[in-house]
Design a binder for these strands. Structure first.
Length: 284
DNA sequence: AGTGAGGCCTGAAAGC
DNA sequence: TGCTTTCAGGCCTCAC
């Protein structure tokens, strides 16, 4: 389930391996991803040099010398394998193999929620993928005032608001729970109830959580792996995610009384939090 | 306009 | 043991 730190890790690995390389061959074994891979994808990207590899929100972007950019999204189960040469044999769910002058990229995606497509580089910012995105977490424009303005009319929970890519980019289900815990804000609070101080704390918490996760190479849960096959390590630093019933790292509560970390459903998704440290009532 | 539900998809895990 | 059901979740579409 690649969120921002996982995509950042993938992007760095891609950059190291194939930035500056020329794409020599593209083989697509299953075009039916979340969006169908365009019929002319191979023709558009073949023989082009990859001039820049970067990330926006949860997308990895490979900008080509020929005026196009490859848009790559990993959905929930998307993995990249970086190999020195084209693989002799495909593994299950290997859908796309891109061979370059510096190595081969294999896109493996069991659930096929990922995306591989292209766009004219000049129209990137007005494309449907990026036009409505919010701010990057480390953008200096992400301020308490910005959050207050965006949260002002929101009746939904602060957890749901953090997952809304139109407000802040790159936060998924794991890091939403972790960031709210870091900020000691209950996920049950409505977004509009946040004070300016709490917004400031939340921004700090989001940045700290993502920074730590990036340093650890992301979280390896179920599907995600780094491109070299190794695991990320941030899951060992999770404070609340997946820790139902345990005592959180900053608590000295009596587990028999508090029940420890709670797991609840919000909008059909699991949320984890410490009811002792993340009280619902609003501090004045 | 904002919100919530449904759907896409597979495999692991839980339930019976 | 082996079948069926549930769960995981990013993000788009649709109905209210």
């Amino acid at each position: 389930m690649p969120e921002l730190p996982e995509v950042e890790t993938i992007k760095e690995a891609l950059k190291k391996a194939v930035e500056g390389a020329v794409i020599s061959d593209v083989a697509i074994y299953n075009r039916r991803l979340r969006l169908v891979v365009p019929a002319d994808f191979e023709a558009i990207v073949s023989q082009a040099r990859i001039t820049r590899i970067w990330r926006k929100a949860k997308y990895a972007l490979l900008t080509l010398e020929n005026g196009y950019t490859i848009i790559w999204h990993f959905g929930m189960s998307g993995r990249v394998k970086i190999l020195p040469n084209p693989p002799a044999r495909l593994e299950k769910h290997d859908h796309i193999v891109i061979t370059t002058s510096q190595g081969t990229l294999v896109f493996n995606d069991a659930r096929r929620f990922g995306i591989m497509t292209y766009i004219q580089t000049a129209s990137l910012s007005c494309s449907p993928f990026f036009r409505t995105l919010g701010l990057e977490p480390f953008d200096s424009a992400l301020t308490p005032d910005y959050l207050l303005a965006r949260f002002h009319h929101k009746k939904s929970s602060i957890k749901a608001a953090l997952l809304d890519q139109h407000i802040i980019n790159g936060i998924g289900n794991i890091y939403a729970s972790e960031a709210l815990y870091e900020a000691r804000i209950s996920p049950l609070r409505t977004a509009s109830s946040l004070t300016k101080d709490e917004s400031a704390n939340l921004i700090k918490a989001v940045r700290l959580t993502l920074e730590k996760a990036i340093k650890a190479g992301g979280s390896t849960l179920r599907d995600y792996r780094q491109p070299d096959g190794s695991m990320g390590y941030f899951q060992h630093q999770h404070c609340v995610y997946g820790k139902t019933g345990q005592r959180c790292p900053n608590c000295c509560c009596n587990l028999a009384e508090t029940g420890g970390i709670s797991q609840i459903k919000q909008d059909g998704r699991s949320t984890y939090y410490c009811p002792t440290l993340q009280k619902e009532d609003i501090k004045k």
